[in-house]
Simulated scan of single mutants.
Amino acid sequence: MDLRIFTEPQQGASYDTLLSVAKATEDLGFDAFFRSDHYLQMGGADGLPGPTDAWLTLAGLARETSRIRLGTLMTAATFRLPGVLAIQVAQVDAMSGGRVEFGLGAGWFAAEHTAYGIPFPREKFPRLQEQLEIITGLWGTPEGETFSFDGEYYRIEDSPALPKPVQSRVPVLVGGMGKERTPRLAARYADEFNIPFASAEDSAAQFDRVRRAAEEAGRKPDDLVYSNALVACVGRDDAEVARRAAVIGRDVDELRRNGLAGSPAEVVDKIGRFAEIGASRIYLQILDLDDLAHLELIAGQVKPQLS
């Protein structure tokens, strides 16, 4: 089971804070550092010092780290034009020496769009589908050839389709709980399918839908990586768990039901339930980015039991 660190910087984090977490992620042996792509805090936090841009952040971290994979859960298709996004991701891939993974979602948080003057279209899912076709098409066009696309929402004409990522294929992540269109989209474009904040039972049903869609698309279901994102709140004892839950404003019992909360042994046991349904990767949502001791505990007492 791969363990990856997943952050939510819109809740309040500077680049320097993210850098310290990314370096700890690398030093402690985790597989990857991922971040959300949001411009507005959610819930009761004040959001200070303000948002950081996902791909600007990853560009900086690409030069400050050497091993960990870097990516987004998920880049919002509403934030960037697909041609520009293809260039940005390819450039960060080059800056990292080929360590980027690309999660793309439809975008959903209307308030952040109005807060920063970003259009929030009604037809988000078909735009997502066109963006995936364009971005993967640009990357997959052989050098010296051009790429064109005439869709309902985007038009590309004779693009040189440059630059290319360093990797021969940047891993593409698609996710969500949509029962019909989402599995088909994953079957067509994704290397990894991710489910955020769902139970093992609900995840199992969605993974099965994706496997069936992959077969219908002529792919082997096991060609895809299946993963979950879950909030982490681990402590050596109940008091430490309660302290960490209080800092992030969450109830311990709720976290035990819906996330990975409790002692290292409890967390390992729950991760095992996700492994049983076919998940091979867990994104640990870390909400208190100043608590690097939390990462040390997970690295020292959870991660070794999952090797």
Rank of each mutant, 00 (worst) to 15 (best):
Q206S: 14
Q206R: 15
D208V: 08
R209P: 06
R211F: 12
R212H: 05
R212W: 02
R212D: 06
A214E: 01
E216F: 05
E216I: 13
E216P: 10
E216R: 14
A217C: 08
A217P: 08
A217Y: 04
A217H: 09
R219G: 09
R219I: 07
R219F: 10
K220L: 13
K220E: 15
P221W: 10
P221L: 03
P221A: 05
D222R: 13
D223R: 04
D223Y: 02
V225T: 15
Y226N: 05
Y226D: 06
L230Y: 01
V231F: 03
A232I: 11
A232V: 09
A232W: 02
V234Y: 07
R236S: 13
R236M: 03
R236K: 10
D238L: 01
D238C: 01
D238Q: 07
D238E: 14
A239G: 11
E240R: 03
V241P: 00
V241A: 00
A242V: 02
A242P: 05
A242E: 14
A242N: 08
R243K: 12
R244H: 05
A245T: 08
V247D: 10
V247S: 07
I248K: 02
I248D: 02
G249K: 04
G249H: 06
R250V: 01
R250Y: 03
D251E: 13
V252P: 09
D253K: 13
D253N: 15
D253V: 10
D253I: 08
L255P: 14
L255F: 06
L255D: 11
R256Y: 03
R257E: 15
G259M: 08
A261I: 10
G262E: 03
G262Q: 09
G262F: 06
G262H: 08
P264N: 03
A265S: 12
E266Y: 03
K270M: 02
K270N: 08
I271F: 11
I271G: 12
I271T: 07
I271D: 02
G272S: 03
A275T: 12
E276N: 04
E276F: 07
I277Y: 04
I277H: 03
I277D: 02
I277W: 04
G278H: 05
A279V: 01
A279Q: 01
S280L: 01
I282S: 11
I282R: 06
Y283R: 08
L284F: 10
L284C: 07
L284P: 11
Q285D: 11
I286L: 13
L287Q: 15
D288L: 02
D288E: 06
L289G: 05
L289D: 08
D290R: 13
D291P: 06
D291A: 08
L292A: 01
A293Q: 13
A293G: 15
H294R: 00
